[in-house]
Structure formats: C-alpha cells, structure tokens
C-alpha cells in the first residue's frame, strides 16, 4: 500500500472515529493515562533535535523531552511514553480522534488551529520563525530576490500560507510546488527543482544536516518572514489535563530561572530554603494537589529531563548537532521571551 493511501486511510479512520457513538470523555484523559500506565504522545517522524528515534529506537529531542517530563509528573516514570510519529497532515486528526493524549511536534500555535479544530495550544516551547534555505551557488542573500522564482513547500503546515502572504506583500509572484511529504519536498529542492525550500528556521537547520550531501553547500537566509511559536497541543474539553501539561512546561521554564538543574534536584530538595524552589520541588506547599497530582510531580519531571535551559542545550543548543543560538528562547531576564507564570 502506498504511503499516500495510508495517509488518506488515516484521515478516513479518524473520520470513522468521529462517526462512532462514544462521546469525548471530558476530564478523563488523566484517568485513561493512569489506567493504561502510558502517556501517548504524538511526535514528528524524524526531526533531529526536536523528535527523532536513534539507532536503538530510543526517542530524543526537545519535543520528546516535553513528553518525558509530563510522563514523569503524572506517571512517575519518563520512560512510560508511547511515541506516535505523525506527519504534518495527520497530527491534528490524531489528537482530535483521541489516538494521542498530547501533540508535541513542532506545531505552530495559531488562532485558527486553536479555535476551529477543537484543540488548545498550551505553552510555547520554542519561539521560531519561517526561514528559507537556498543553494549556496545561487548567491541569493535575501528572500526579496525570489521574484518569479519557484519555491518548494510542504502541505499541511503553516508555511504555505506564510509564503503566499510574503510573496504578495513584496510583490514577488513566487511560484510554489507543494508536496505532501517533507522528504519529497526537500528532495526536489536538493535536486535543484526549486530555488529554495521554506519552513521553520529550526526545521531548516535539521533538514540541512539530515538531507544535504554537503550541508555547507546550503545557506539558511537570516531573514525570517513569520512568527512561529511552537508548542504542544491538547484536546478541548478536558481542562484538568490542559492545566497539567501547561504547568509542567511552566515548571520546566521557571526551574531554569531558579537554577534547579537535573543534577541538583535531590540535593536542593533537602537543602534549599528558597520558598520558590521549595514550592517547585514539593518540599513546601503542595502544588501538585491542586492539579490532581502528588507533591513530587515537578521534582520528578526535573529529574527526568532537567530544566528548560538544559533541554534546549542538550537537544538544539550551540553545542548540539543543530547548533541553534539561544536567541529569543532565553529567559526573560536574559533578553529572551521565556517567562514562566509563577508556580505559587
């Protein structure tokens, strides 16, 4: 069976899910996870740095670490996650139909997605923007030089529309070739069918490393043409579950602000007198109870993945294979946009 048929089959199955009689179980996501002993997390099929399986089949990446932190908080074990690799097309239907509990897959949070798909965006885990990759030998320095050019894009993403908007605003008459599969779109770009391929700048870095025979032959242009705040999404209709995911992520971000590293969790638990640290680690007030969890929820999450800064450095930061600068993803008091609502 071709992959194309599979895709539509998946959509059809999701549609069947909607046709079935059982109504959505509001407020029951956590119960479901607990009774099956597993968090089902929708991730990217392979975007090194964000979500990708290594040669042993072990998943890793920034998006994957969010799943691990949530699993550690609610189930006590970061390994109790079932990863469902999803294409850009499949992701929302998979979440709507209840096939996954959490969608953590470089997904831009937008009004339309939030308001018309029956989903909720939680917290931004990576502030990104749409960029362009070009062949070095084309000598293109700026996307404004794309007049009458052909650009390859992947459908099922926010990128198609952004590209059209940009082309219109700058009167560029850019022609698009739209592929359903990322591999097909990037292959066409690498073959020289298109002058450029466009998607989130973070994705471009990953694709350059993964797909190019000589990564140095390709340049990612510095101009970004859109805001792409990436973050996990959950189904509407289960406020408790929405709150848990949201607060685990805020916890990861705030832990960086207070310097609660993975290695220091155990020691800080006994020694720290800082009331904020005590609240986060569950040695002060019981914040977990308000969420329907236990006292140690955040301490377990931090022991599993480390705080947001550690997650960033390990997976995508300057010293990783992707080598992305921290930039606007730094803490608010260091010139970035990461500002956690307080755990209190």
């Amino acid at each position: 069976m071709s992959r194309f048929t599979k895709q539509w089959l998946a959509a059809a199955l999701a549609a069947c899910g909607l046709m079935a009689a059982a109504p959505a179980m509001a407020g029951k996501t956590l119960d479901g996870i607990k009774s099956r002993g597993q968090l089902v997390c929708g991730v990217h099929t392979g975007l090194p740095g964000f979500s990708a399986a290594d040669s042993n089949g072990k998943w890793g990446g920034l998006d994957v670490d969010v799943c691990r932190a949530v699993a550690a908080a609610v189930l006590g074990d970061p390994e109790k996650v079932k990863y469902v690799p999803l294409t850009a097309q499949q992701r929302f239907t998979a979440l709507q139909s209840g096939e996954i509990d959490l969608l953590s897959r470089n997904t831009t949070l937008t009004l339309t997605r939030d308001a018309s798909l029956g989903l909720h965006g939680t917290v931004v885990t990576y502030y990104d923007g749409q960029g362009f990759i070009v062949h070095k030998k084309s000598n293109i320095k700026n996307p404004k030089q794309f007049k009458n050019q052909t650009v390859c894009v992947q459908s099922g993403t926010t990128t198609e529309k952004n590209l059209t908007d940009y082309s219109k605003a700058n009167n560029l008459n850019i022609k698009t070739v739209v592929f359903e599969k990322e591999e097909a779109a990037t292959a066409a770009y690498f073959a020289g069918r298109c002058i450029s391929y466009t998607t989130d700048a973070s994705g471009l870095a990953s694709i350059r490393n993964k797909g190019a025979t000589t990564p140095a032959d390709h340049v990612i242009l510095s101009e970004l043409v859109s805001k792409e705040p990436l973050g996990p999404m959950v189904r509407r209709g289960d406020d408790e579950w929405f709150a848990i995911v949201k607060w685990v992520i805020y916890g990861l971000i705030e832990a960086e602000e207070y310097d609660i590293t993975q290695a220091a969790v155990d020691q800080l638990k006994t020694s720290s007198q800082d009331p904020v640290v005590k609240r986060i680690l569950g040695t002060g007030e019981d914040t977990g109870k308000l969420l329907g969890l236990d006292k140690d929820w955040m301490a377990r999450a931090l022991k599993a993945t480390g705080h947001y800064g550690e997650i960033f450095e390990r997976n995508v930061g300057p010293k990783s294979a992707l080598g992305l600068p921290r930039g606007i993803n730094n803490q608010w008091n260091k010139g970035g946009l990461m500002y956690a609502i307080p755990i209190r």
């Binding site: 909607l18 046709m19 109504p23 018309s116 209709g237």
Partner: peptide
C-alpha cells in the same frame, strides 16, 4: 452522519 455531527460539536470542531 448524526453521530459525526454530534461528536464534532462536542469536541468543538467546526
């Protein structure tokens, strides 16, 4: 058909 419509409404899908 009616189940689909009902479920979509319950889940807030337009």
């Amino acid at each position: 058909a009616s189940n689909t419509l009902h479920n979509m409404r319950v889940r807030g899908i337009q």
